[in-house]
């Protein structure tokens, strides 16, 4: 692996930027020299990359490369566990807030940035209350407004038709794919500025997976989306931009089409052709 890292033949790593010039703004967020530590373990190493506003960016790479770690920096999930440490900046535009600054309140960031997890995790509540949960946390008490927003979120998440007659029924009675779409509805109900997807289809069958992919596709243009995926075809299908990470570092970031057709670095080509990972 180390040999491959140094033997880059496609481009000179010193003169070729990791982030392709094809990745142009407006940016919703910019990661700048981020380092992250789980206790002593250095999980992210000087990662810098932008995320284009209202576009889908896929984070790919082998297990343990740091892609999920980076994703969870955006909503400060690492703050839940002791011994974790951030360095650097993740600037959120347009207000120029550094998301990972200790001065920034994690709860506020989590209200502004939605997340969908690897496995569907609906609460043991009704379908309606699951989607209303984030709205209620933000202080919404008007029943009319809640009902309207829940309906809009369920429609956006393409699950309204299946749930409109059973909104007061338990969310855990839905199928896995429906539960995941419900979790997407829950995440988008509060109109977050960024939506994080952590391998959202890894626990689903192919049909449920393609419905989630269609859904993410339909959310393009409304939300800035970051998706971690193990599935290269999935990245190819839904991501406008793709970033490959390896051993805690960014290897290459480019427009998905450009990167899949002609990667700039040998390491990227090796990963895309299945030679490692």
């Amino acid at each position: 692996m180390n040999a491959e890292r140094t033997a880059i033949t496609h481009a000179d790593p010193a003169s070729t930027p990791k982030v392709s010039p094809r990745v142009v703004g407006p940016f919703k967020a910019e990661v700048r020299d981020v380092n992250f530590y789980y206790g002593q373990f250095h999980a992210l190493k000087n990662v810098s990359m932008p995320f284009v506003d209202k576009r889908v960016t896929a984070l790919i790479g082998p297990s343990g490369c740091g892609k999920t770690t980076l994703l969870r920096c955006f909503n400060r999930m690492h703050d839940l566990y002791p011994g974790n440490r951030y360095e650097g900046e993740i600037i959120l535009h347009p207000d120029q807030i550094n998301i990972i600054s200790p001065k920034v309140e994690p709860l506020e960031m989590r209200m502004r940035i939605g997340m969908v997890f690897q496995k569907p995790n609906p609460f043991s509540k009704s379908i309606f209350e699951n989607v209303a949960f984030g709205l209620r946390l933000q202080g919404e008490t008007n029943r009319r407004v809640l009902a309207d927003k829940v309906e809009a979120a369920l429609k956006s998440a393409a699950i309204w038709d299946e749930t409109k007659d059973r909104l007061q029924k338990g969310a855990r009675d839905l199928s896995g794919g429906q539960q995941q779409r419900l979790c997407i509805a829950r995440a988008i109900a509060t109109e977050p500025e960024i939506l994080l997807f952590d391998e959202p289809t890894s626990a689903l069958d192919p049909i449920a997976t393609s419905r989630i992919e269609d859904l993410i596709d339909s959310l393009r243009g409304r939300f800035t989306i970051l998706i971690v995926t193990h599935n290269l075809q999935q990245a190819g299908r839904i991501a406008d931009y793709t970033a490959l990470m390896y051993k805690g570092e960014l290897v290459e970031m480019d427009k998905t089409v450009a990167m899949f057709e002609k990667p700039s670095f040998k390491l990227t080509e090796d990963y895309l052709t299945g030679r490692f990972g």
């Binding site: 909503n75 999930m77 209200m111 997890f117 949960f133 946390l137």
Partner: peptide, 13 residues
């Protein structure tokens, strides 16, 4: 499971 708690935390709870 922790996953359920994280779901709530991720919404700002």
């Amino acid at each position: 499971p922790m996953l359920l708690r994280e779901g709530a935390y991720a919404l700002g709870a």
